[in-house]
Design a protein around this nucleic acid. Structure first.
Length: 771
DNA sequence: GTTCTAGAAC
DNA sequence: GTTCTAGAAC
């Protein structure tokens, strides 16, 4: 497997034969004496299948040290011969590198930098050994040389003209880079960008993805440029430049004060503090959803992947998506590759990669700050495939963090989990977030199979990718404009957003923006808050409105105008459903799928709520056919409690049902006694929400979902403002007090419609006498 | 969802 | 003057 990782599958978008031609690469090694530059090139050259030339200034003059012009001349000759090059000299500052970069750019080759940023002590001790055991004096000289070099150190940046920069800070990094370059066949290319840049505080580093001033970066780099994008001076690199740098603080044993001022000035252009470190390109690595264990058809899945990638490509700005599979022979990978090429998807925004999704950075040299997990509905480790691998690689930290976010997931939905800093995936692979996504299941051996219904399957798979990509975008966006200090809050705080439609201008950070970002952490919930859209059940509901593009742009505008978010006061039930353990005192019963509690403001003598414990099921409009089992469970549990109360008082009558448009988030079934004898029942809305068609009987909802896939939802404005009528004799009353005094004495039998189909729940003897 | 309260309805 | 509603704020 390790070998597989090394083969970079940048086989994106083949634009004809030009790309098939062997393309040399110039690797400018950057490092102090003793950092291992020569060893690096020797190792690669020893096992590479492409022709390499090493230009070493120490030996270029007939085995003796030569000059920079000599190196440039040799390099030029080698490039003309189609050789790939190692520029083996210290190249510690920009000026030293620039002529070589220029040479490479002129020759239309990819110019890479490999930075051997190893500890000064190590470089010094190697230098001393190399100069031949000449004692303290020589040792002292070597130390002085290394120290001087390190003082001059100016780390390379993409805007110098590098297509790719890899930083190595320890022997593992060096070995990984050697492997990557060794495996680079004549026709292969390595991903562009900055890799392995170090932060003095790892905890901070991985959480930050700074891509400031994104507004200035054209969202589609390729659209207006010529065809020279793959030259050694990629346009994208120039754009990324201001965001791919670091200060020198803490990067060597020696003070670099002068340097730091310069870097700070650079950083100031991006209006960010001088000690903020900047990561490379935000990247989402994702496995193909549902095609493995869930046996989703590869052809159909690849169509959907490409369709969704295409849809999101325009919104990605400087971020990118990578479809990952473990095997070179992957059917889905080759299908997607071919289809992506056909549809001219920008290879900078999307490509495929062969490797282990849990070791992309350490083994493949590909830094993906976000990885997607093909999760199971319980969000539990184990099973097999990607899910087992990711949970295993991430350690228990992921399981804990996931539990805090959600207990379960519905097909088509996704949930973002910020990875705790003690997870190996965070420290080793530099993954800051895992997005769990659940796709449709076509495998009859797994829970809730779709029985080969590909109409539904495709629709759910589309939703799954929409949820996934929207989630990734929300991470990128939330991390792109905020100081890193806010990021921790951003990813860990529970949803507490106000009205998304009040968000500030797109590129202007405001408080309300932050709240929206925060909410995006739970992708699957977002659009459920649009009260204006509750009849559109199967629609693309997961995309954050801010990221909806042309495909659904009109709809989003419509929704944007009428959408209403869940206020912070509306989150109580959601919090209980997600964290029942924190609300033990309030709960009557906790089961796997539901919890039961008393309504805090009961509108009758008995008034319970049966809460669904599913992420993404905010209200009745979210319920679909695959939730029938859940609805039946909720009904059964509600019924059990009603019967318990009937046992205590056989004169009671219960009704079980849902509000068409609930005020509180999280699907909840009301179990309410029909006396409506409560001081909390105070106004017309209270009454009508339980005594008009706004109240949807549980039995009817279940039938509708079974038969039509969705429940009827009655308009709240018309229903809740209806005249006040007695639920038994249907007499009208002018106001709530008068109505209440009437219902306290009305003994009329219940309307026939309510007595049918078990809508009312009565004690056996009452049932008989009224039937 | 509730609370608060201005002002309409009585 | 008191009761009740309905909209805003939370």
């Amino acid at each position: 497997m390790a070998d597989d990782h090394q083969k970079m599958d940048m086989d994106i978008d083949n634009k004809g034969e030009v790309e098939q031609k062997a393309k040399p690469v110039m690797v400018i090694l950057v490092g102090a004496p003793g950092s291992g530059k020569s060893t690096f090139s020797e190792h690669v050259m020893g096992s590479s299948s492409r022709p390499w030339t090493r230009i070493c200034q120490d030996t270029i003059n007939n085995g003796k040290a030569g000059t920079k012009p000599q190196c440039l001349k040799s390099a030029s000759i080698a490039l003309k011969e189609g050789k790939s090059l190692f520029i083996d000299r210290c190249n510690m500052d920009k000026e030293q590198r620039s002529d070589f970069v220029k040479l490479g750019c002129g020759a239309q080759v990819d110019v890479h930098a490999v930075v051997l940023d190893l500890p000064a002590q190590l470089c010094i001790s190697r230098s001393v050994k190399r100069t031949g055991h000449e004692g303290n004096l020589q040792g002292g000289k070597a130390a002085a040389v290394v120290n001087r070099m390190l003082q001059k150190k100016e780390l390379p940046k993409l805007h110098e003209g590098f297509a790719r920069i890899v930083f190595c800070h320890n022997e593992n990094d060096v070995q990984a880079a050697i492997k990557a370059y060794s495996a680079l066949g004549p026709l292969d290319t390595l991903p562009n960008g900055c890799f392995g840049q170090k932060n003095p505080d790892a905890k901070i580093q991985l959480g930050i993805m700074k891509f400031l001033k994104k507004a200035e970066v054209p969202s589609n780099v390729g659209s207006s440029s010529d065809t020279a994008q793959d030259s050694a001076c990629p346009q994208a690199s120039k754009e990324i430049d201001p965001f791919c740098k670091r200060t020198n603080k803490g990067s060597s044993l020696l003070g670099t004060a002068g340097k730091e001022v310069k870097e700070s000035e650079d950083l100031a252009k991006g209006s960010v503090g001088a000690d903020v470190f900047v990561e490379d390109i935000p990247t989402l690595a994702f496995p193909s959803i549902s095609t493995a264990d869930f046996q989703f058809n590869n052809e159909k899945a690849s169509d959907i992947i490409v369709e969704k990638v295409k849809e999101f490509a325009d919104k990605l700005e400087n971020a990118r998506l990578v479809l990952v599979d473990l095997s070179h022979g992957s059917k889905i990978l080759s299908l997607v590759r071919a289809k992506a090429a056909k549809r001219n998807i920008d290879s900078k925004k999307f490509f495929t990669f062969v490797g282990d999704i849990t070791q992309l950075y350490s083994q493949g040299g590909l830094h993906c700050n976000v990885i997607a997990n093909a999760a199971n509905w319980r969000l539990k480790p184990g099973g097999g495939g990607v899910n087992a691998a990711i949970f295993s690689a991430a350690g228990p930290a992921l399981e804990t963090a996931t539990k805090e976010r959600a207990r379960s997931l519905l097909p088509g939905h996704a949930v973002i989990v910020p990875l705790p800093s003690d997870s190996p995936l965070y420290t080793r692979e530099r993954v800051s977030h895992v997005i769990h996504v659940l796709g449709p299941n076509m495998n009859p051996q797994r829970p809730n199979p779709l029985d080969n219904d590909y109409t539904k399957g495709c629709s759910i798979l589309r939703e799954a990718y929409t949820s996934l990509f929207s989630g990734f975008l929300s991470i990128v966006r939330s991390h792109s404009k905020l100081p890193w200090k806010s990021c921790e809050n951003l990813v860990s705080a529970p949803s507490d957003l106000k009205d998304p439609s009040r968000g500030g201008p797109k590129n202007h950070l405001t408080n309300s923006d932050q709240k929206i970002k925060r909410d995006d952490d739970c992708v699957s919930e977002r659009s459920k808050k649009c009260k204006g859209s509750h009849n559109e059940i199967g629609a693309d509901i997961s995309a954050p409105s801010s990221t909806r593009g042309k495909v659904s742009g009109d709809k989003s505008k419509l929704e944007g105008a009428t959408s209403k978010s869940w206020g912070s006061w509306a989150q109580a039930l959601y919090q209980i459903a997600m964290h029942p353990e924190k609300h033990k005192d309030e709960l009557l019963e906790v089961l796997d799928d539901v919890v039961v509690l008393n309504d805090l403001y009961p509108k009758a003598q008995r008034h319970l709520l049966v809460l669904a414990r599913f992420e993404g099921l905010d209200r009745l409009a979210d319920v679909r056919q695959e939730n029938v089992q859940l609805l039946m469970t909720m009904h059964a549990v509600g019924l059990k409690w009603a019967e318990k109360f009937l046992h205590e008082d056989s004169s009671m009558v219960f009704r079980l049902g849902y509000h068409s448009v609930p005020s509180l988030r999280q699907l909840h079934l009301h179990v309410i006694s029909q006396d409506f004898n409560s001081n909390h029942l105070k106004n017309k809305k209270h009454w009508n929400s339980f005594n008009t068609a706004f109240f949807r009987d549980s039995v009817d909802v279940i039938e509708e979902i079974k038969n039509h896939g969705k429940a009827t939802i009655k308009d709240e404005d018309s229903q809740l403002s209806m005249e006040l009528r007695c639920h038994r004799c249907r007499s009208a009353h002018p106001n709530i007090p008068r109505l209440k005094s009437h219902i306290s004495i009305c003994q009329a039998p219940f309307p026939h419609a309510l007595l049918k189909n078990g809508r009312l729940v009565l004690a056996p003897k009452y049932n008989r006498s009224n039937a």
